[in-house]
């Protein structure tokens, strides 16, 4: 049995002047589903989110929420929560007042406001901060307050526009987990926008890949990651895109093996260095194609200027069929 989608975007197009930034975008989000919208900078992710929220108007297409067409409704009548890169907390209002703001606008009874603020502050670990001013909070605390404020009125869906971009890297993972847990616990559907591959693959029940204003791929995170459908999608997902036997293939940097000269395709090492997960080696084939190899070990086994041979154990054909050669 298929339930009615919480959100449905149908053939949506949007433009800035004569420049079309979204072309025929369709996607749906089921109740409680966490969809990650991934794509490079300038691919139209934020415009899509703002159009869904009602801050931009589409040139074509429709936005439906719980089966209702909301395309013509102003933002405050849609019941969609949105969280921006910056927390945008109201200055001059305490944390409690910020969280309660939407409830008070909706004229909810005082008891319900108290109860909802208490529940959300407990869920997002804000109990000790309720009397504080926004200026007295850290970046991560501010974003947690902003999420609590967004969730308080009980939106049908929450749109998260790169909410961790302005948070310190060391706090990002914890905050990511807290957000995901809170949304899952409340069963709220969400669209999370990011250009960070790791974040997208970690968070999403489903990933939607948006490139140049078009949805090019959609599905469970690992399925999308394992089967890039085009050279552009493969590049965005971190694959090397190469010619193999007269056709284009995508090769995962971790699937590239370094061999002594003569045991594969000759390549020159351009640069090498250590990363948190091992070593990264940038290579150049005789054809001029550049590719990256990732190998285990703290120290790279080769240095710049050395000649090696490369082989790969697995590649994905980029002819649209998504075949994998292993």
């Amino acid at each position: 049995m298929s339930s009615e989608p919480r959100l449905e975007v149908r053939s949506l197009s949007a433009a800035w002047g004569s420049n079309e930034v979204l072309t025929d975008v369709s996607l749906s989000v089921q109740p409680g589903e966490f969809v990650v919208l991934m794509g490079p900078n300038g691919s139209g992710k934020t415009t899509l989110l703002r159009t869904i929220a009602g801050f931009e108007w589409p040139t074509r297409g429709a936005v439906r929420l719980d089966g209702r067409d909301v395309t013509a409704l102003p933002p405050h009548r849609r019941g969609i929560g949105i969280l921006f890169q910056e927390p945008a907390l109201f200055p001059g209002r305490s944390v409690w007042e910020n969280i309660a703001y939407g409830l008070e606008l909706a004229r909810r009874p005082d008891a319900e406001v108290q109860q909802q603020v208490a529940a959300l502050s407990q869920l997002l670990d804000l109990d000790g901060l309720l009397k504080r001013a926004p200026e007295a909070l850290s970046g991560g605390e501010r974003q947690r307050v902003a999420l609590a404020r967004t969730l308080a009125p009980g939106p049908s869906i929450v749109l998260l526009d790169e909410p961790f971009a302005s948070v310190d890297p060391e706090r990002r993972a914890g905050l990511r987990a807290a957000f995901r847990a809170a949304l899952r616990r409340l069963g709220v559907a969400a669209i999370h926008v990011t250009h960070d591959r790791e974040e997208g693959l970690f968070l999403g029940d489903r990933v939607v890949l948006l490139l140049s204003g078009r949805v090019v791929q959609s599905g469970p995170p690992m399925q999308v990651y394992r089967n890039p459908s085009s050279p552009e999608a493969a590049s965005f997902l971190g694959y090397n895109v190469l010619q193999e036997g007269g056709r284009l293939v995508a090769v995962d940097p971790r699937d590239i093996e370094l061999r002594p000269p003569g045991e594969g395709i000759a390549a020159e090492v351009e640069a090498s260095g250590s990363t948190a997960e091992g070593s990264s080696i940038m290579l150049r084939l005789l054809t001029g194609t550049r590719l990256e190899a990732r190998v285990s070990g703290e120290r790279p086994p080769v240095g710049a200027g050395q000649t090696v041979a490369v082989r790969w154990s697995r590649s994905v054909a980029l002819d649209g069929a998504g075949r994998t050669r292993g």
Binding site: F55, H76, I80, I82, F84, F90, L105, R149, T150, P153
Partner: peptide, 17 residues
């Protein structure tokens, strides 16, 4: 700030709010 206004609108506040 544009995002503050959009936050108000997304929380149910109309143009007057």
């Amino acid at each position: 700030p544009t995002d503050l206004e959009e936050t108000v609108r997304s929380l149910g506040g109309g143009p007057v709010e």
